[in-house]
């Protein structure tokens, strides 16, 4: 791992921590949320070496990190959203969106469309990863059934 990658991972942690505070997460849950940010960029760095395709990496990282979020949420007895929204912060395609806007002025139409598509692909990969994990979590962590009094 290069210095730059380590710096990125730390920055990802700080970013998630900052959003955790903005979202008013307190105590132990805040630590879990921030560590999620660290894990997500750490995994991205590792996967990026193996696959060298950002979209696939985003999908895999989102799936694994959401699983981390599902497990943390059950462990700390709090809604899963708390950890999903904060942990995935470093993966938000902010730079992608910026370069898309930028290319509207200096790249020409083709570059613009190309970058816009990449941005959408990254966002979709994130969402699909989250959905996949949620579906798995639903199968593996059974919830108590809702007790109804209608059946007689």
């Amino acid at each position: 791992m290069t210095n730059n990658e380590i710096l990125q991972i730390i920055a990802g942690f700080v970013g998630s921590l900052g959003f955790g505070i903005l979202f008013n997460i307190r105590g132990k849950r805040l630590i879990f949320a921030a560590v999620g940010g660290l894990i997500s960029w750490g995994l991205f760095v590792v996967f990026n070496k193996a696959f060298s395709n950002e979209v696939i990496c985003y999908f895999l990282v989102a799936a694994i990190v959401s699983l981390y979020a599902e497990i943390s949420a059950r462990f700390l007895k709090t809604p899963t959203t708390t950890f999903i929204t904060t942990s995935l912060i470093p993966l938000i395609p902010g730079s992608s969106l910026y370069y898309t806007m930028n290319s509207a002025f200096i790249g020409g139409f083709e570059t613009f469309v190309q970058k816009a598509i990449v941005t959408l692909q990254l966002a979709a990969a994130l969402a699909l990863g989250v959905i996949l994990s949620a579906a798995f979590a639903k199968i593996f962590f059974k919830k108590a059934p809702i007790i109804t009094k209608t059946e007689e």
Binding site: T85, L88, P93, G94, A123, A127, L128, I131, A134
Partner: peptide
């Protein structure tokens, strides 16, 4: 970004 993730998740689920 998170809003988009949530939107797509709602759509798919």
């Amino acid at each position: 970004g998170i809003g988009l993730t949530n939107a797509l998740r709602d759509l798919f689920t």
